[in-house]
Design a protein around this nucleic acid. Structure first.
Lengths: 139, 139
DNA sequence: AGTTATTTGTCCGTATGTATA
DNA sequence: ATATACATACGGACAAATAAC
């Protein structure tokens, strides 16, 4: 499976391999991944390598991990269409650790900030798609 | 500095402590952090804890790390104001590992995707602010 | 130009704690 | 209660990139 002579590190090879298993449908959205110990034995690498691989996938928002439970492939969440006001300024960044927990966000999910003269709103990026105002009628 | 009896893990205490040192101006944008070994000795923790703390800050886009060099506090980049077209759909997600390198993006930086009928464009979130179309004139 | 030292990256092992099943 | 599984923390070793000399 993994090539120790490759210049690519083991944990990135493993991350890539797991992504392949998701694309082929072997690990569809919502499915549990094998446990860290199982993967460690299956691929013949240390648990450290397995954890590094999973950290990559978590940071990309591909998998979700909860303590005491196996990691699972992130489900494609239903996105709400949010209509942005005119002349608004939209910036995007990663939330801080505290923000992430306060807003109940998963790891690997950016934060969208919509700023106007009147208000400022925050939105987890996996729950909304921003729609810009339509062309004025009559053109 | 760090409290081993605290329910908060050492690496998150350390991350929090480093953030404080940034806010006070001891570690301004662009400044080099102490090396992992130095921090390990200064705080009396393993290098593992130091690396975990830095991984948190990298994922939040707070610091930048290059192999062989010390990590540094991320400079606030000049953001370009990008005027979004009307009726566009804007989604945000983290880039994959490959995308991140192809677009020369730093770790901890989200990817903005602007989608219209005609085209689709991708923008690293640390370089742009999206401006929505203005209110039609005459209102 | 080349050698050495520094620094981060990767990988291994072990142990214990804590949440979930 | 017991077992499973992830989280945290320690230690060591070597590779690879950079910096210093």
């Amino acid at each position: 499976m993994l090539d120790r002579r490759s210049p690519v590190s083991l944990y990135r090879q493993l991350a890539h391999n797991l992504l392949d298993r998701m694309r082929t449908g072997e690990l569809p959205p919502g499915a549990d991944l094998p446990s860290e110990n199982t993967l460690s034995h299956e691929y013949g690498v240390s648990r450290d390598v397995v954890r590094d691989a999973m950290a990559v996938l978590r940071a990309e928002g591909t998998i979700v991990t909860t303590r005491g439970r196996r990691s699972s492939v992130r489900r494609t969440t239903t996105v709400e269409e949010l209509h942005a006001p005119p002349a608004a300024r939209i910036t995007v960044r990663m939330p801080t650790y505290d923000e992430r927990h306060r807003l109940d966000m998963l790891e690997g999910v950016p934060l969208i900030v919509i700023h106007t003269d009147e208000f400022e709103s925050h939105h987890p990026a996996d729950r909304v798609a921003i729609i810009t105002p339509p062309e004025p009628a009559g053109l």
